[in-house]
Every structure is written in structure tokens, then in C-alpha cells.
Amino acid sequence: MGNKAYAFIAATAAFLVAGPAVAQDWKPSEPVTIIVPWSAGGSTDTVTRVVAGELSEALGQNVVILNQPGASGSTGTRSVWEAPHDGMTMAAGAVADLGAYPVLGTLDAKLEDWRLYLHVANPGLISVRTDSEWKDFGDLLEALKTSEEAITVSSGGLSSATAISMQTLEKAADINYRQIVYEGGNPAVISTVSGETQFTAATATEQVDMIRAGRLRPLAVVADKPLELEGFGTVPPVTEWLPEVASAPNYFGVFIPADAPQEVLDTMDKIWAEKIAGSEVMKAHAAERGALFNATYGEEAVKAAMPYLSINAWQQFESGAAPNDPSEFGIPKPE
């Protein structure tokens, strides 16, 4: 074989090797939109704005946040699903919501139809106004067990952190409560601060400012380990009073339809592995907001988020709030 033939083969091989690397480099030519399906100021909105700044720097393009609350988060998520699957419109939220939408019948897209990019886990926190008669969770638990009138808890919606936490507590104890629903965690927390509701079980991230300002007193974290809250101290786990309460990390992230162009997914994978996972900005935000930072994506993200999704989906189904069997959507029953 002549030198020209060898040169042709070498050039062809180089092209084939170089081709995929070029294809993986997604550079959006216009701003990318992330739809937050909750109101501004809540845990999803707050952390997504931090993520958007990191993404914008990595992509070399503006990343715009659009708040679109409604139907327990499914309205905004549906907008992403119905938009072109080109990576230009992404969703934000909790995997516990995203995976439960088909169980609730509010969105047909299953968890496997999305590519997950997770960043923090936000524990639920049971808190009251600082002037409340309930000084610890034992006091509140006794009231929930004995009160003839339902005690009101502020909630961000059917599949919000509050709803999931309260259903978890309800499985462990006979309690009398009523959820008052608001369009997201932030207005729900404000309702407890103002006295419209008697307590909240929103995420620590949504409550931390009011706790540091002395407006709310945290009684227990819905977990099996205490929460160290910067600027406050240690919050005991709810398992000190109810050892059988099921708990798992409630993971939040950014979601892209899994059938988006491969170069979009490859670029996002690379950004998550090389920038987000080591982001000092994200780490500082998590510590300041009482969240667990654990950036992961793809199958590893599904594995991390599935325990809390399972708790949520099966509680919704078994309580009668959701019409569809979670196992039909690949969601295993919690052990």
C-alpha cells in the first residue's frame, strides 16, 4: 500500500476519533431557560438561581429562570416536557415530585424519560413560631394526637416536602392535622410566621432565614440524624420521638428530557462532573441553607433519589391521593 493510501487512512481515523469530541461540545446560541415550577423564594427557586450562575459560566451563555407554579409543580414541568427537546428549556425541582407526577396522573412523562442532574438534598424541618406553646416536638406531637380540632400545617402542595413529611408522620402516629396549601414553600413558611398556620414542615432551606431572624423555632428534622444548622445550632431528629419514621434524602436538581440531542447531554454530564461537583459556590450555598451538597447525574442520580421518591409515590398511592400504582412506573415499594 502506498504512502498516499496510508495518509488517507490516518486522516480518516483522525476524523472519526475527533468527530464525537466535537459533537459533545454544545454551545447554545441563545439564552437557556430553566423553569422552576414553584414561586420565587422557595428552596427550588433559591438553589436553582445559584446553579444557573454556574451553568451560565460553563456554557458561555445566559441561563434564565422562569417561575411557573401550579398543580403541585406539574404545570411548569409540563411546559418543559411540551417544549422542544433540544436542551434549551430545562426543568428544576425535586425528584420526589418529578417521579410522582405519573402516579398522580398530572404528567405522563416517567422518571426514565428525564436525564437527572442533582445538586442538593433538602431535609424537611418541623417548626413553629417562636411564641408557640410547643417548646419541642414532643409537645407538638402530643397536641397532634389529642387535639379535637385539626392543627394546621402550611404546605406547598400535594407532593411538597411538607405533604411528604406529614404523611410519613401520619403512618407512624395517629395525628389530627389539616394542610393549608400555598403556591410553594416560601409563602407556606410565611403563613406560619404570620400566624395563619400553626406550624410548618417545609424544607430547612425555606425556613433558615426566619429561624436565624428569631421568627421560627425548629423542633425536629424529618430524618434519623440531627441537623447542624449554621447560625442556630443542632436540631434533633424526629426519630427521637418516633423511631419508626421512614426518612431518606430529598434530592433537588435540573432535569432535561432524556431524548435531547446527545451533545447536549454529553456537555451537561461534563459540566456536572467537572464544574458543579467541585463548585465552592454550591458548597457554600448548601452549608448556609442547611442542605446536603451531593452533585451527581445519570444513573447514579436515580439511585440516590429513588428512596425518597419511593416513600412519596407509595404514600400518595396508598392514601388514595394518587390513582396509579407506582410499580407501573418502575418505582419500588419502600422496604
Rank of each mutant, 00 (worst) to 15 (best):
P187T: 03
V238C: 04
K171D: 14
P226R: 01
L216T: 04
T192L: 12
L219V: 07
N250P: 00
G185P: 00
A188W: 02
E170D: 15
Q207E: 13
Y182M: 08
E206P: 07
Q207L: 04
A173P: 04
G233Q: 05
A172S: 15
R178D: 12
V235S: 01
G195V: 11
I211M: 07
P226G: 02
E228F: 09
P187V: 03
G195I: 12
V245A: 09
S247N: 09
A223R: 06
E240T: 13
G214P: 00
S194A: 14
Q179T: 13
A204G: 07
P243R: 10
K171G: 08
G231A: 10
V193F: 11
G233N: 06
I180T: 13
G195H: 10
E244G: 04
A201W: 07
R178K: 15
G185W: 02
L216I: 09
T234E: 13
F232N: 02
D224E: 10
L216S: 06
N250T: 09
P218D: 05
A213E: 15
P187E: 00
S194I: 04
P236I: 08
G233F: 09
V189L: 09
A201K: 06
M210R: 12
L229C: 10
P187W: 01
N250Q: 13
M210S: 12
V235K: 01
D174A: 05
V235R: 00
A213Y: 11
Y177V: 10
V245C: 06
K171L: 14
R212H: 10
P237K: 07
N176R: 04
F199G: 01
L227H: 01
V221A: 03
V238Q: 04
V189Y: 02
E240Y: 10
F232W: 14
N176M: 03
R217D: 08
G214T: 05
I190R: 14
G233E: 04
F232P: 02
A172P: 00
S194H: 12
E170H: 12
V193K: 01
P226M: 09
D174N: 09
S194W: 06
E183V: 13
F199T: 09
I175Y: 02
N176V: 02
T205A: 14
T205F: 08
